[in-house]
Write a protein that binds this DNA or RNA. Sequence first.
DNA 1: GTGGTAACTGTAAGCGCTTACATTTGATTT
DNA 2: AAATCAAATGTAAGCGCTTACAGTTACCAC
Lengths: 343, 343
Amino acid sequence: MVEETAIPTLADVAARAGVSTATVSRVLNSPDKVAPKTRERVARAVADLGYSPNFGARVMAARQTKTVGAVIPTMENAIFAKGLQAFQEALHEYGYTLLVASTGYDAEVEDAQIRALVARGADALLLIGHSRGRGLYDFLARQEVPAVVTWAVRPDDAGAVPSIGFDNRQAMRELAGHVIGLGHRHLALISAEIAQNDRAAERRAGVRAALADKGLSPDALIYVETPYGFDEGSVAFAQVMAKRPRPTAVLCGNDVLAAGALRQARAMGLDVPGEVSITGFDDIDLAQILHPPLTTVRVPHRDMGRQAALALIGHLTGAAPLSSATLDTSIVLRDTLAPPGHT
Amino acid sequence: MVEETAIPTLADVAARAGVSTATVSRVLNSPDKVAPKTRERVARAVADLGYSPNFGARVMAARQTKTVGAVIPTMENAIFAKGLQAFQEALHEYGYTLLVASTGYDAEVEDAQIRALVARGADALLLIGHSRGRGLYDFLARQEVPAVVTWAVRPDDAGAVPSIGFDNRQAMRELAGHVIGLGHRHLALISAEIAQNDRAAERRAGVRAALADKGLSPDALIYVETPYGFDEGSVAFAQVMAKRPRPTAVLCGNDVLAAGALRQARAMGLDVPGEVSITGFDDIDLAQILHPPLTTVRVPHRDMGRQAALALIGHLTGAAPLSSATLDTSIVLRDTLAPPGHT
DNA sequence: GTGGTAACTGTAAGCGCTTACATTTGATTT
DNA sequence: AAATCAAATGTAAGCGCTTACAGTTACCAC
């Protein structure tokens, strides 16, 4: 056991196989360029040594990593999971690896994570939402790292990063419109924090637009903003129900807040949807597990993820320029929404 | 606009600041070794150029990446999220970055992801559970990448990767023991798939042990194994309730399956816990959102994540050898468990 | 046999960065 | 003002890999 203890390198493999490093590199990257015999000998050496290429060196020499990064606000729940899963699957089909970093909805952390991923050689990036400093986009441009934004669209700004997402405002506007159409006049909105979160901002704008559509005053909207979480949703619901006139429908910026709201409603002995209607947004699996099942907005998570991946890959391989796409959402009527009742 | 279009390198910065590359490198890595004036000049050049260090090159030259990787079965739900979050936070405190890869509970994918992370220069790894090929551990050893296993412990095998987790078997044994103590005699277990998943296997073993403890036959356990998911839980519950003697308590391998089971019970018009008790495992947030709130096993997610991070960091900095730790779990009695009732 | 060609394989020049070591600078001391 | 030494900076040698280019072989057609 006088084993060489250092981590084996290409050169070690080459030596053991009695070939040059170039040949080893070839069998690793384009096996068909090497004679079967040599290839096998090298393969054996690789196996014997337990050799694994040093990625850093490879990246440096080859200028591409076949990995794409995704920076998401949180892994704490399923909101981004489905889409990311599809994204990952599509990437995998094309031989790319996905690396995920999360930010906890913190802009500074996001900045750092994006830079970390780029520095680490991500060939491309998936970002959530548009709201981040101009500087970051400049940085990406300078580093020549293509990026695509999902979970949102920005129709107005042609110069920004392309987005493959959906129209948060329009979706919420439709849902709120439907709620109002049912006869609700006193609406409340429990929103995620809007600073740094354009999806939340857009959704609120959607509710206001719907109010305006129906000739109601957006100012009458009872509004509470809260961090993300079940408990936060519960607390916000209690707050909102304490207002007068008491809302007959409580729209929530996402399903998680809605779940918290629903729980609180039960705790308060309120019948849903008899005494108060509650809606969510995202249609994550949770929405169907709740009781009653949650009325919400369905987002094409998987489609979005896959399309984003294909767009990025298409761009990386030079097949097509990156372009935006807007996917459709739909309202999923389940059992937490009904016309305003007694009281 | 005759901007140099190439990505700026250390040398570019050095040239612009009128210093050597060594100096630039120093202001980037140990600013205090550089005169304030120079430092500032370099900083300006960095900013002007929008320079960002090439990670690959840095890794290669410096031999460490300050990043640790985590390979988890799935991001589709909150099971690993809490622990990972804590893991990440602790890493962050020490200047490390976390990179996450998921496997979809597929051993081959896991193998690939682990290698990818190592190749990418992860200084250390967080793994879930013990069940994977010996070869992988050899690989890690050879690459000198320390790893720690979480969500499980393996008391018997001293040679393996150290683990910072909890005793799945014992935890489940206690829960099942409690259920039996309540008077239940007909138990069912809805388990996650056991192949490749030692946590699930251990939990099942725990139920069997509890049965044996009380002098009941482990063979009488109604057992269904299913992939992960709400719907899967529902289906499994229906299967299990079709068996005779009909179980009065249905233990689930995790909270997600339990949530599905609970929904199915409602769909079948079964009162929980009046007609049938249901329990989960993990105590993810979801457990409290369900109605009725789920009786389950609390796992010290955050503690586990943090301790794993600290252990890894301690090892990387040479402060302490990696060693195992077993954390305590506890039974959380909520409202889905009661003594067997009528019927 | 020869020359020509295709198929392999080797040589060596970087990729962008860190860092040991050498050199220069500038205080401080005498 | 010379000597001394610490602080600041520069020089240059790699880190492990890819790849353009050059050199070898092996094989065929003539």
